[in-house]
């Protein structure tokens, strides 16, 4: 189990939270997702064996939110 924090560009609409949380939550190996709206970060806990950080990043980017780090 590993937890990462990804910094996104400043989030403005609260509906983004739902969007990201729902989509990431459906990913295989992702245990817990929390979008920290006010600091514009995504905190994700995941199983390293079944999913890679890169994949999580890619999914978020596909939703239209580039990760900064």
């Amino acid at each position: 189990m590993k937890t990462i924090k990804l910094q996104l560009e400043p989030l403005t609409c609260p509906s983004c939270i739902k969007k990201i949380e729902t989509r990431l939550g459906k990913m295989n190996g992702v245990e817990e997702v929390k979008v920290m709206f006010n600091s514009s970060k995504v905190k994700a806990t995941f199983n390293e064996e079944s999913v890679k950080v890169e994949e999580i990043k890619e999914t978020i980017e596909k939703l239209g939110y580039p990760a900064l780090n």
Binding site: C13, S15, K18, K19, T22, R23, T59, K62, L63, G64
Partner: peptide, 15 residues
């Protein structure tokens, strides 16, 4: 439309 399309493709609801 881009955001709407992205959401649709990922099968999530968006405003």
């Amino acid at each position: 439309f881009i955001k709407a399309f992205q959401a649709l493709r990922m099968k999530v609801f968006s405003i």
